[in-house]
């Protein structure tokens, strides 16, 4: 299955999931208590399962079914988290990792967007670059880690390079797909109505490609964290991955689990950010309007 197909499925799934979620929770103060309760329920539904799992996990740890050297209790991890937070080490490492992740996303994203747009618009550009890009795409970018360490050592450039390379492809492919599938009838309309090439791009092609670009961005976010974690685990002197590896050296299982949980949280945060962006940029899209009617 190609990324594009997966992207299409993902966006369909997103649209489907959104239909089910009432959106205007803020506007419903005046509603009767039963409705407000229903809204609250819908908002919190996603957190019920994680909360139950944590409770179960705590219980199993307390009664000794899970040994603390295999998986420490949630309370122990919370304590470790609190200690790391107080020392400032946790925040510093999170900050370093987030900065790296978004710097890589920015560099790779901008290049991917530029190539996607160029190859979507220009047959010539596509003919000359697409083959090369597709060949590079099929090399797993994490396989380049040994080479990257030889080139850059374990400095920032190495992580930036890997993350940028990783996020480049989903953004490139989805942008290309988006630009190439903009309704040709709308493009013809724009031409007939006298739009200049720049206006045509700004008002027709780019907005038409945007839903697809967002699918690419969501994939890119996943790859961004994955790449960064692997890179930090193998070669780094700071960051969350480094923190987890250090903890493993000293058999601090609680800190290792803490790092993993923070990854999950950061992933969720990036997803929320994209959703927010999507809702702002794709207001016109019927999938985002259904809930308002």
């Amino acid at each position: 299955m190609s990324l594009v197909e997966r992207g299409a499925r993902l966006s369909a799934a997103i649209a489907g999931a959104r239909h089910a979620r009432p959106r205007d929770a803020r506007r419903q103060h005046a509603r009767p208590a039963a409705t407000r309760l229903a809204v609250l329920e819908a908002r919190l539904a996603g957190w019920v399962l994680p909360a139950l799992l944590v409770v179960l996990w705590e219980y199993l740890s307390r009664i000794g079914v899970i040994a603390p050297n295999v998986l420490p209790a949630p309370s122990a991890i919370a304590q470790a988290g609190w200690a790391a937070l107080k020392s400032g080490e946790l925040l510093r490492n999170m900050w370093v990792s987030t900065l790296r992740a978004f710097a890589g996303l920015f560099v790779g994203g901008v290049i991917g967007l530029a190539f996607g747009i160029a190859n979507g618009l220009s047959e010539l550009s596509r003919r000359y670059t697409d083959t090369t890009l597709q060949m590079i795409r099929n090399v797993p970018h994490l396989a380049l880690i040994p080479l990257v360490i030889l080139w850059f050592g374990i400095d920032e450039e190495a992580k930036l390079f890997l993350v940028a390379l990783g996020v480049f492809f989903p953004i490139y492919i989805n942008t290309l797909h988006g630009v190439r599938t903009v309704d040709p009838q709308l493009i013809e309309m724009g031409r007939v109505y006298g739009m200049s090439p720049l206006t045509l791009f700004r008002r027709v092609i780019l907005p038409g490609a945007l839903p697809s670009i967002f699918v690419g961005l969501r994939f890119a976010l996943g790859i961004m964290w994955l790449t960064l974690i692997v890179a930090e685990t193998i070669a780094a002197s700071s960051g969350l991955g480094y923190m987890a590896m250090q903890a493993r050296e000293f058999l601090l299982v609680d800190v290792v689990v803490l790092a993993i949980l923070i990854y999950a949280l950061l992933g969720k945060l990036a997803d929320v950010l994209t959703r927010w962006l999507e809702e702002r940029c794709l207001q016109w899209h019927p999938a985002f309007q259904a809930r308002r009617d």
Binding site: E188, R203, P207, H285
Partner: peptide
């Protein structure tokens, strides 16, 4: 350019622009 206009079988409105902005597409620059 603005002296000849065509109306297609499909509306061909820009879905990402509101009705007013879509009408403005037809105005000369």
């Amino acid at each position: 350019a603005a002296a000849t206009r065509i109306m297609f079988q499909e509306p061909r409105l820009l879905p990402w622009e509101r009705v007013l902005a879509n009408v403005e597409v037809g105005l000369p620059a």
